[in-house]
């Protein structure tokens, strides 16, 4: 049975989805990934979906679930490289995935994970998270 490989890079795990996701594969990935996180004690997970062209609501929900599960296991998750068409589809399906961190590519995703890990290690100092997908710039409203 085919599986999606999970690579370990230091204290992070790297998942690259390069085949068409079908439902069984997604469930298998969810199983494998949670197991690997608890085995290795990884601090972060990076999921690269740049090769994923088609998503449906099930796969979208699986992505959300996987990252929420990782978070429960104390590993930050970043989804990187989402295609424009996939992003539009997910938004139209109402799956804005509010709990997930995102980045444009693997490089920026790694940077984000390192910044996050450094922030956790130094007790929440300013880790220079300048690639942040959720910056702290929510100084709401048009104040002048």
């Amino acid at each position: 049975m085919e599986r999606i490989p999970i690579l370990k890079m230091g204290e992070f795990l790297l998942v690259t989805i390069q085949v068409d996701m079908h439902d069984r594969l997604a469930l298998q990935l969810q199983d494998d990934l949670t197991n690997r996180i608890s085995q290795t004690g990884a601090k972060g997970v990076l999921i690269d979906i740049s090769a994923l062209d088609i998503v449906d609501s099930f796969i979208g929900r699986m992505l959300a679930n996987i990252s929420l599960m990782s978070r429960v296991l104390d590993a930050a998750t970043v989804v990187v490289g989402m295609q424009p068409a996939v992003a539009i589809t997910l938004v139209e399906l109402g799956l804005t995935l509010p709990g997930i961190r995102t980045a444009l590519n693997v490089e920026k995703g790694m940077e984000l994970l390192r910044a996050y890990a450094a922030g956790v290690a130094s007790g929440g100092g300013d880790g220079g998270a300048n690639v942040g997908a959720d910056g702290e710039g929510a100084d709401g409203g048009p104040v002048r």
Binding site: M82, P84, L90, V91, G109, A133
Partner: peptide
Amino acid sequence: VAAARLMGAE
């Protein structure tokens, strides 16, 4: 905004 965020842009 949500779609851009999904792609990793703010």
